[in-house]
Design a binder for these strands. Structure first.
Lengths: 336, 336
DNA sequence: TTGTAAGCGTTATCAA
DNA sequence: TTGATAACGCTTACAA
């Protein structure tokens, strides 16, 4: 049976409220009382009861991170930064996986775990999430990656069109003329997939190259396996460059190319997006467009915290503004 | 302002307790009352208040997963399985990262977040954690991976010695005679590092090969970078095989070998441990000893749940028994 | 500077 | 089968 404030108060010979003051670092406490209470706390091994505290304050000190799946390295790296940024601000992070499932996504926001947290950082699977915005007076949500909710929710991410443009342009500048596209999407065309595709096409047009549908493939998810399958499918064409919507797809594509005797980068140049650590050590090393993941995570946590505070003060949360984070084109061996 | 049981009770014309009964699926409720309450809940958009419920019940419905860092793919994959297994049992997972830091590890168990969860699945950084066991009547802990607490805590993991033996033996059988070891550890020799090293040595001895300290390197952490550095360091020797304590170290080693013009597997055969998805698509594909990660995660969640229930019923938790999970030697291109 | 009283939303106990 | 009442441990008025 853990000790309560009551126990500490009794042992220290003060009132419960005084213990509370000491615990919360309330300013006006006499030296004598402070040390007495401190000693009692130590002796009893008292820890404030989290549930009682949040029942009273309405805050849990926990935020939720909802991603498709941690097995996809981008989300693991993002999660790492989110957990770190949250820790710096005294917050804990609850992680949920949607596996690209709408129902799981909805549950994460409306179900019990939404109630157990102060707010959510969501990497949505699809842009069609009217449901997200229509939630009545629930905890705040900040979007990361995919855009959703029709621009009604705050969103942190890179300029996907520009990132795709940079990647494709890089391939063209390295002398490729038949540049293909391997894009990830769940279900129907997502906003992110469309942006990356748009950037790809604009880069082609700017270089006076034609957009050839035969060089374009879509995958259901983000796994290496799917990138490999897409490339095998493209191998019959005269492809000499491949812009992949994510690094994992690119790494899968490189593996498949290798199996088919296609030399990367000689026969085929490959560029991805994500800036995974894995691409720095792959064979060949992967050229990529690296978003500032640390910044995305940090800003997402900050924005969420702002929204939580605003709502707590009864204010109306700032409506969904877009926040664009930088990226960097990293040229490595897969595209030289 | 979210609706409370009180509001629902008023609208449905029943008492608060009745609403509680309906919400918790209590057996004896008249059809009529149930539907009336159900309608009221829907109309008001009522969700049970998590804090109040856990204050009352003493349960949070959340468990903690404490790992060194999610950026290390093994932990990301493990986390994925833990989150999935927890979800199946109606639990949420709070993730904390220790970054190999003792203080963070201690805080995760004793600090506020320990109070916010029903129990902890811990992947400790070192075996020297007397502190873990000496915690007074705190929430239960189940260990995963590294052993700690002097066998006083339940532990789920593979037989590290046998896994290392299998990996090393495989290298020897493929004709290697100068097999090196690249091992991960934080600070002083961890229990896991020692077990893996023991298995490595036993396999050498069983094949009448000598253990040569010059072929052994230790890294501080688990990153590709460190595996690469270790291999560069070993390159001056006559090494023809390398057993790496983790897949990430192995992948780093392969990259470094490549850079030095060492052909894997012709000049150097490499085997890791972890069974990462990454190794299935790397160039060359990575031979590995794959633990049943799903089972480790599932059993850890189950054991933790058992311990939580036992403690809730006032029983003394079953003492730290070891639970061994299977592994599989996966032969791929890096060691043929 | 400290103490007293009240209540956060829920479930457990016990009567009705 | 349902309802009243009392906690759970804490913080926030307000009073001393």
């Amino acid at each position: 049976m853990p000790a309560t404030q009551e126990d500490v108060a009794r042992l220290a010979g003060v009132s419960r409220k005084t213990v509370s003051n000491v615990v919360n670092g309330f300013p006006h406490i006499s030296k004598d009382v402070a040390t007495r209470v401190g000693a009692a706390i130590l002796e009893l091994g008292y820890t404030p009861n989290h549930a009682a505290r949040s029942l009273r304050t309405g805050r849990t000190g926990t935020i939720q991170l909802v991603v498709p799946e941690l097995e996809v390295s981008y989300f693991a790296e993002l999660a790492q930064w989110v957990v770190a940024a949250a820790e710096e601000r005294g917050l804990s992070v609850l992680i949920r996986q949607t596996r690209g499932d709408r129902e799981r996504e909805r549950l994460a926001l409306e179900g019990a775990s939404g109630e157990a947290t102060d707010g959510t950082i969501l990497s949505p699977v699809s842009s069609d999430l009217a449901a997200i915005v229509s939630r009545k007076s629930q905890a705040p949500v900040v979007l990361v990656g995919e855009v959703a909710g029709g621009g009604m929710l705050p969103h942190i991410g890179i300029d996907n069109e520009a990132a795709a443009y940079a990647a494709t342009q890089h391939l063209i500048r390295s002398g490729r003329r038949r540049v293909g596209f391997i894009g990830a999407q769940r279900g129907q065309m997502s906003h992110m997939a469309r942006m990356r595709r748009d950037g790809y096409e604009r880069a082609l047009r700017d270089a006076d190259l034609v957009v050839d549908e035969r060089l374009v493939r879509y995958t259901d998810g983000y796994h290496r396996r799917e990138g490999a399958a897409a490339l095998r499918d493209l191998a019959a064409t005269d492809l000499d460059g491949a812009f992949c919507a994510t690094d994992l797809l690119a790494l899968g594509a490189i593996r498949a190319a290798r199996d088919l005797g296609i030399d990367v980068p000689v026969d085929l140049a490959v560029v991805g997006i994500d800036g995974l650590d894995e691409g720095e050590y792959s064979v060949p090393r992967l050229s990529t467009v690296a978003p500032d993941k640390n910044r995305i995570a940090t800003r997402a946590v900050e924005r969420l915290l702002e929204a939580i505070d605003t709502q707590a003060e009864g204010g109306t949360p700032r409506d969904g503004s877009e926040e664009v984070v930088g990226f960097e084109l990293v040229q490595r061996e897969s595209s030289s």
